[in-house]
């Protein structure tokens, strides 16, 4: 009973997805919508296969930007987490700025970066860093600050120094929250790289899409969208996998 219910739960989203695709294809055919307005899913799949070699080179460029930015953001978030933890005053001084920085419209920044840093890979990486840095840092700091004060008191009563407490208690306790931040940042990273490319680049999926959009090759634009979705999904899964192996204690079910 339970097993069949499980399978049904797993199949449900797939069936919904297939139904929607079917509806889309049928709609495009029944209403005879022009392919340069909206191609059907079959046409998109066709474009995906046809343009695979070209898409792959652009994907490589986008992935390089996204991953570089992602890793730089992780390093910066860890550094900032350690620094802000060391001093209450620094925390007070910097934390509000961090929040406010998120109100700056990213699109404007992206345009400015192309003016300042040109059409190469640098401005895209900076955008990815800016986008990813925030969720990682905020989650990490939330995790650090939500450690039970009694837990910290216990270690203080045993004579542990602030740094030891950070290393042995606060940081490991914050890891699950840190990974939630990573998961959000992972999806953002690809999107941020694409936005950067969209506003001016020489390669990458964003650049590919602007070109194809201008020539009304909507099927190829959508093919690129599929790749973007797959990449984001893949990155999230990699983060999940890393969490699974790095935090074995977090996956074990409670017994009592």
């Amino acid at each position: 009973m339970r097993k069949s219910a499980n399978t049904a739960h797993k199949l449900a989203p797939i069936i919904t997805f297939l139904l929607l695709l079917l509806l889309w294809e049928a709609g495009v055919r029944v209403y005879q919508i022009k392919p340069w307005i909206l191609p059907g899913p079959l046409a998109v799949a066709n474009a995906l296969v046809k343009e695979t070699p070209l898409l792959l080179t652009h994907t490589a460029a986008t992935l390089l930007e996204a991953l570089s930015g992602f890793f730089i953001a992780i390093v910066l978030a860890l550094l900032l987490g350690i620094i802000l933890n060391s001093s209450q005053l620094l925390h007070k001084a910097i934390y509000p700025l961090l929040i406010i920085s998120q109100t700056i419209p990213l699109i404007v920044l992206a345009v400015l970066f192309t003016i300042w840093f040109g059409w190469g890979i640098t401005p895209k990486i900076i955008i990815v860093v800016l986008v990813c840095f925030f969720p990682i840092t905020i989650n990490l700091m939330e995790g650090i600050n939500s450690v039970d004060p009694d837990q910290i008191n216990l270690f203080r009563s045993m004579g542990a120094s602030n740094f030891t407490i950070f290393r042995m208690v606060k940081f490991p306790s914050a890891l699950p929250a840190f990974f939630s931040g990573l998961r959000i940042a992972a999806t953002y990273s690809i999107m941020a790289a694409v936005i950067g490319e969209w506003l001016g680049a020489q390669k990458g999926l964003g650049y590919f899409m602007t070109l194809k959009q201008k020539s009304f090759a909507i099927d190829e634009v959508l093919a690129a969208v599929i790749i973007i979705c797959l990449l984001s999904f893949l990155l999230v899964k990699i983060v999940d996998l890393a969490e699974y192996f790095l935090l074995p204690w977090n996956r074990i079910e409670e017994i009592s």
Partner: peptide, 28 residues
């Protein structure tokens, strides 16, 4: 750092094994 202090909550670190939790004060 002179006396052993235990509270109502167990305050065991969830990310360390039972043995490591117990051995930790000695490491400190």
């Amino acid at each position: 750092g002179r006396v052993g202090y235990m509270q109502q909550k167990d305050l065991l670190l969830p990310f360390r094994t039972v043995l490591d939790n117990i051995a930790l004060p000695l490491v400190l």
